[in-house]
Design a protein around this nucleic acid. Sequence first.
DNA 1: CACAATCTCTACTATGTCAATAGATATTAA
DNA 2: TTAATATCTATTGACATAGTAGAGATTGTG
Lengths: 155, 155
Amino acid sequence: MKLSVRGEYALRALMVLARDFQEDDSVVRIQQISKKQNIPKRFLEQILNDLKSARIVESKRGVSGGYRLRRRPEQITLAEIVRHIEGPLAPVSCVSEKYYEKCSCPDESRCAIRSIMKQVRDDIVKVMESTTLANLAERSRKLEHEPAGHIDFVI
Amino acid sequence: MKLSVRGEYALRALMVLARDFQEDDSVVRIQQISKKQNIPKRFLEQILNDLKSARIVESKRGVSGGYRLRRRPEQITLAEIVRHIEGPLAPVSCVSEKYYEKCSCPDESRCAIRSIMKQVRDDIVKVMESTTLANLAERSRKLEHEPAGHIDFVI
DNA sequence: CACAATCTCTACTATGTCAATAGATATTAA
DNA sequence: TTAATATCTATTGACATAGTAGAGATTGTG
């Protein structure tokens, strides 16, 4: 049920780009992102390149090159990102909308597990589709100015 | 974000045991489960053995041997099963309650992604902890008697 | 023009996980 | 005794994961 490290890095990197987003065509260097988020630089290259092919980011080459979001942060949902990096959001493919695959159970249409998993899927999708990079950036900015003790969620 | 095939097989097998559950000490043969659910028999052996070590099922050896639930179906939640087979229910370990692990982000307590993922985790856990094998068995019985066209959820 | 900093592309690798498969053994009922 | 079952340990092939490495292309600056 877990996100891969790759997926986590993608989200963290895009959050940085969302926070630095400006309407002009300014870019952020890979190295900056890598440092800020503790992500191996060479690995991050691959991931950003991958996100480029998904038309989520765009790049500028050369000495003052770097990456930027290809669309405004309000228009990029976590669902889109995770789906591109990881595949289905659903816990089993037989309840996935975007990546449906038949499963091996004897009668899919009468599978009780499937109906439960569909509920789980819906909950996941609801959160992931309603959260944009803009939400993430805003939340990140707020948390930054919060005193350390006042964080309102626990492990 | 996906359940492994192993986890799916575990749920399907346990659903069979839940449906056949009786208060006496009657058992179900691996082969029956394997046939009914299209699960490779040898693989299923391993899985059931694993569930035995988790004290979810118990076994009887010998010629009329087999497996049965170790507790009543109402007392076994999907969360317990999946946690034992797969590990954390949470999409990232840094928001897992049972399998917490520190993540590599610069400041975990102020990570915006973390606070979103916590919400996803809570949704998943809510469904998985409130659903028992008894619920699953009951739902399965109902679906079985439903005419094919009337299934009320879609892909 | 030269150069250095950046992105780009391809390939490689070590490790681990997944989904089985196999074989030998122990247990039990008839 | 035998046949059907569970148990245990090991192995395998395929694939994914999380990187690492090297060479090349692009571009702004001096």
